[in-house]
Amino acid sequence: MSTETPLSTETALSTEIPRPVLEGRGLVKRYGHVTALDGCDFELLPGEILAVIGDNGAGKSSLIKALSGALIPDSGQLLLDGEPVRFHGPADARRAGIETVYQDLAVAPALDIASNLFLGREIRRKGVFGSVFRLVDKPRMQSDAAKHMADLKIGIRSMGQAVETLSGGQRQGVAVARAAAFARHVVIMDEPTAALGVKETGMVLDLIRRVRDNGLPVVVISHDMPAVFEIADRVHVQRLGRRVAILRPSETDMAEAVAIMTGAAPGNLAAA
């Protein structure tokens, strides 16, 4: 398959690449005169944490929106498990098994943890109580929620407590648990450590690792360079609407990444 991808001409990482779980080829998105995505490529490999970094205006959020269905690219192709897909909205991407954790937007603070986890996907009681009276199965949602939270080792006892009573990191934990519970292919996280303290950031990074270790590849968009270098298996560097480099944190350092991000140093990918 690598013969059809632009990657085949590249020197970096061109050997023994397994088939990407999620792939973007030549994605373009223009807003009037502004080009947010300018033939952008992307791939997420099985079982990895891929960080997407880039300066403001590099097209990071446009790329992520295109992957999560929140934006329809003008041209280019998206492939999920090698199959071409088209998303007309976030619901399409969700149906295809891609879950996104949005920064700050993910939870309803006054609702309890179980209600938040199952928001929009409530489980109803079996039988007439569920079908006629639309009764939601709270005990089951609570026990399922507890199981999902335990899968990620999030130590919260009561699934009946309101999300607003939790710390920032724990709230993020609820959002991540929801994504991990329902994602079948990919989890995307937008700035998961923004506005968190040091300890909480560590906790969320561990969560992200556990999601990967449980078998789901994760895309993380982040400004937080130390965090990126701590957890990412690979780093996708976005600049001027394109992917300009793929880095491995073990083979590079933050200074180089920042230099590529800002254009002070060339990337390691040939311009498409």
């Binding site: 993910a106 928001l119 996907r121």
Partner: peptide
């Protein structure tokens, strides 16, 4: 006790969360 009711609460609480949850 119904999903519609839970959504109604969530709607007043954080409409973005409800929209992004696919409702």
């Amino acid at each position: 006790h119904t999903a519609a009711g839970r959504h109604l609460y969530a709607l007043g609480d954080n409409p973005d969360a409800v929209r992004l949850a696919g409702v």
